[in-house]
Nucleic acid binder design. Structure first.
Length: 410
RNA sequence: GCCAGGGUAGGGUAGUCUGGUUAUCCUAAGGGACUGUGGAUCCCUCGACCCGGGUUCAAAUCUCGGCCCUGGCCCCA
């Protein structure tokens, strides 16, 4: 038997309903903040992703050549594509641009809990606003979205200025090595590397920086940093807005293109892959041949949110089954249409089963049954049976519709 | 790429240690009896040893390789 490809999943209706429910909660937050959905291709020129993240990531991407000999890749993330689209299509649109997306991404990695080869990201990109309140808005949205899903999380906010200030005398390559140690919390390796670089004293300052939890402490360790005023403002806005976060100046995000604020969200009960959100302020446009533009954004690992939420029973649609005999069939079709027109999910027997068998089936799949046999076809009334209580009565169609409607609104 | 544990009908399972009848049971699904409550009862049907090699008279069972799943390491844009 043919199996689905490694790291991919099938979603049955129950699970899709649960996923859509959460998806729409995220969409609703984006909408309320004025972020409108965009969509980019599922595959792009390979170069788009290697320019952003380096050649090394080719190993972790689905890379292929098309029949025209083009080097392409399934998107491993969306931010690069969104910025490419901005440069291609929307450079002169009035700033700021508030965009969001919900799309699947593909990475060739070893699957494990919360990590799949096809996975979904919900993301937000704010393009062209380079202010404290812009940073704060994006972080607020991140918090609102996680709140909306109901997931239990920690939001950690940091800023690259502090680390960059401490590392300002190091070459970029050396900075990257140090950042890598920090990101992994590998303090032994950190001390060793810094000793080799002739900066052993830095190890202590960096360790102190990472463990401090207030802006004042960080400033005390590092001294004045560029953009200090803006950081203070951003955090002030977050505090005023009641955003729950903790400061963490150890967030490096392992990236060269983040420029200022960075933040990450972590969920409980997820094991090794517990990061559910990551983002920050960045500059990418110049890589793709555009004028440089400040951006700030984040992406939520949708599948990890779903794993963390566990089995939340989806809100069930009220289901009405139309049960009829041959004499009632014509009338039953009219009745079904009347119910459907009011928005009620209405299902008819397609198996040519007897009345009893239809009811037996309805009892497993529906909340109400409307019985239409010879008697109802002649009288013009319907028999409505509540399949949970077994209670049943004969009444006119409008009253039956009203009762089922009322049950759905309970 | 590395480590550990797994893989028996759609779902859940027994059997594997100690090779040997027609592979167990529950459930789901389909059909029938019944023909206005059948949501019951009874009967029937469908349906599996992940794949491939090896050992053997004989493999779900032992063995080797692969695939896939679960978790961890690495990586994580």
């Amino acid at each position: 038997m043919l199996q689905k490809p490694r790291g991919t999943r099938d979603f049955l209706p129950d699970e899709m309903e649960a996923r859509r429910t959460v998806e729409w909660k995220l969409r609703e937050v984006a909408r309320r903040f004025g972020y409108r959905e965009v969509c980019t291709p599922a595959f792009e020129d390979l170069e788009l992703f290697t320019q952003r993240s380096g050649e090394g990531i080719t190993n972790e991407m689905y890379v292929f050549e098309d029949k025209g000999g083009r080097k392409l890749a399934l998107r491993p993330e969306i931010t690069a594509a969104v910025i490419r689209m901005y440069i291609n299509e929307a450079k002169v649109a009035p700033k700021p641009l508030r965009w969001c997306y919900f799309a699947d991404c593909f990475r060739y990695e070893r699957p494990q809990k919360g990590r799949y080869r096809q996975f979904w990201q919900f993301g937000v990109e704010l393009i062209g606003a380079d202010t404290a309140i812009a940073d704060a808005e994006v972080i607020m949205i991140a918090a609102e979205m996680l709140n909306a899903t109901g997931v239990t999380y920690d939001l950690k906010v940091g800023h690259l200025s502090f680390m960059k200030q401490l590392l300002r005398d190091l070459e970029p390559a050396a900075q990257r090595r140090v950042m890598a140690h920090l990101d992994k919390k590998d303090f032994d390796g950190l001390g060793q590397t810094l000793a080799e670089m002739g900066k052993p004293d830095l190890a202590q300052s960096l360790t102190n920086l990472i463990s401090c939890r207030t802006l004042a402490e960080a400033l005390e360790i590092v001294g004045a940093v560029p953009g200090e005023e803006r950081i203070t403002q951003t955090l002030g806005i977050l505090d005023a807005a009641g955003v729950r976060y903790s400061l963490n100046f150890g967030i490096a995000r392992g990236l060269d293109y983040y420029t200022g604020m960075v933040f990450e969200g972590f969920a409980q009960n997820l094991g090794a892959e517990n990061q559910i959100l990551g983002g920050g302020a960045y500059r990418l446009a110049h890589l793709f041949g555009g004028d440089d533009v400040a951006s700030c954004g984040f992406a939520i690992g949708f599948d990890r949110v779903m794993v963390s939420l566990g089995n939340v029973p989806p809100k069930k649609d009220t289901v009405l089954a139309i049960v009829c005999t041959n004499e009632g069939r014509r009338r039953a079709l009219d009745v079904a249409r009347a119910f459907r027109e009011t928005g009620i999910r209405t299902e008819m027997d397609l198996m040519e089963r007897g009345l009893g068998a239809q009811l037996a089936h309805a009892s497993k799949t529906a909340d109400y049954a409307v019985v239409i046999g010879k008697r109802e076809a002649e009288s013009g009334e319907v028999t409505l049976k509540n399949l949970h209580t077994g209670e049943q009565k004969t009444l006119d169609l409008a009253a039956a519709v009203a009762e089922v409607k009322a049950y759905g609104a309970r």
